[in-house]
Design a binder for these strands. Structure first.
Lengths: 179, 179, 179, 179
DNA sequence: TATGAATGAGAATTCATTCAT
DNA sequence: GATGAATGAATTCTCATTCAT
């Protein structure tokens, strides 16, 4: 069993549940059943561990992007929306980790470059879709599409206890796919 | 000048710039030129200080809401969008504080009830507007409107360095006000 | 009883006996009967504590210098040599602390400016003496006199177990005072 | 190139530049391009590495002593002083390592026996010289000669930034060789 | 209302050393 | 001879909080 992977797995869960700043290395160690020193051996620092986790998520996004080479932009949008809402329900704490890391000044600074990389990646792949639907306004529509999804995530995860996620999903599908 | 107000002012700025968890009481004291004891005298705890700051923002929103008793829902939307984008540009760090407090599990817990209160407030005043525009779908449209703005704030403040805020604003005005 | 003074007293003894790098803050605290936090409250860091101790010694030297306003340079030299050998025998560990702080790269860096200040102080007061004895060569004779005493201290404290300190003292008195 | 030699070379430089206590085995490994395990394989412990370095210097001194079998004690003194001042200028950090190891309680303890051995060696070879110059006072003159040189080294290396090393050298030559 | 000395629990990090390979 | 994952004890330092004044 790979201890490095185990640390990453445990840390991801704890960071997601309690926030990065409020999860101590000690807690990660105890939960993962490894010594404190090992974390610093593998990741150099707590920040290094966060970076590793953050960049792995980006890599997952990359892989996902490569997967759907559907012919139809509407098909891609459909897949994308479905997987987005799926993750929102299943992986909620994990998504929350990403939002909180990005929005908190200190953690933001730690993964600054990785945020830029990921943002560019998401923007490009979104724009590729809208280029086929509405080439003239594809830039602005991409930004708005991304913002809309992020806003939905933020409100669902952190603001409203009774956010009508299913209806919102229907609405979005209506708006973007069925004209 | 009132020392209590001074503490709140300084703490707001520091929490916004460095995050709540990464700002120590000591730093607030030194910057505000008061003693440590005084903060605990006035706010009972560091969490108490955060709650005071957070609820003051809610009060500001309340006051703002009372102000615009325009006849026309489109006029209200227009005012609302304008002040939103205005604040986004002028008060960016302050808005970021609100997002980060809300999205981080630990701080979220501290102001849980205040978030609920504020969310209800914002939802109600938004719904009042959409009730006049599209009564049947007013609930879903309110949620989507709020999510859209939050998403724009998040992307502008924390994700894209070159987010086309002016074009997004035009687009929203086009979408919500000029049909 | 002043806890700050107590910390300084205990730390001086421990640093002298075990060396700065090998004395932990915990040990200082336990011995002094204060909490860990208090050291950082008063001295900001372990390095700050060392600086405080080092500069106090310089202050002692300053005070000592002001004292002997003997008319005769040979009288001053005599007093000086006597107190030097006296300290060498009584305060040996304390002198060793000074030598080790000065000669170790890391600790040296910490008190760099204080070493410079002290060196200038000692050189000036030595030169004042030799100016009256041999004005033309006073500079070089001052440097040699200081080096000689330091070398004796180093050899007595750290190198030879059977360094003939009394005979060395007689020899120096013969050399510098009785022509 | 022999990895063991490489380790010694790198460690000597690092210990000299940063002090023994402030140089970690990890740093030695990285700089030398070897694994951690290898150091413990060759030297048993970090202390063992220091002892190896320290005793090699003693060996160098031994070899040097064997070399000059001049007939004239003044010739030997001359050679000795020249090589001393030469080393002071060229090998300053290395000499500083020796002084700092000797004067710091912890490191002193580690090489205690080696210091004694080296001190005896230096004393004996110095006394052999003074035996020919002034047999009656040779002991005390040897101690003073050694102390004088050590004091000069200490002051030049660690105390005065503008120590007049050249003039001091001339003075010593005048004092010990030209009457 | 206001101060700041004092606390103590807990944080991240370092580091010599071991050992299976 | 050579590697590097793994350990665990120790280290410096931070920080919210209390309390006598």
């Amino acid at each position: 069993m790979d201890k490095k992977e185990q640390i990453i797995e445990v840390a991801t869960k704890l960071f997601a549940k309690k926030g990065f700043e409020n999860t101590s290395i000690s807690e990660v160690c105890e939960t993962a059943g490894v010594s404190k020193g090992l974390i610093f051996h593998h990741f150099k620092s707590k920040n290094g561990l966060l970076r590793e986790i953050f960049s792995r998520t980006t890599n997952d996004i990359k892989k996902n992007n490569l997967t759907h080479k559907a012919e139809n932009p509407y098909q891609i949008l459909s897949l994308l929306l479905n997987s987005f809402f799926e993750q929102l329900k299943k992986d909620s704490t994990f998504l929350q980790l990403n939002v909180s890391v990005i929005s908190q000044p200190t953690t933001r600074e730690i993964v600054k470059d990785l945020i830029d990389e990921r943002a560019a990646l998401i923007f490009e792949s979104t724009k590729k879709i809208f280029n086929e639907i509405d080439p003239i306004n594809s830039t602005i529509r991409s930004y708005m599409f991304i913002a809309e999804l992020d806003g939905i995530a933020l409100n669902y995860l952190s603001i409203f206890n009774d956010f009508p996620i299913e209806e919102i999903k229907s609405e979005l599908i209506k708006k973007y796919i069925q004209q």
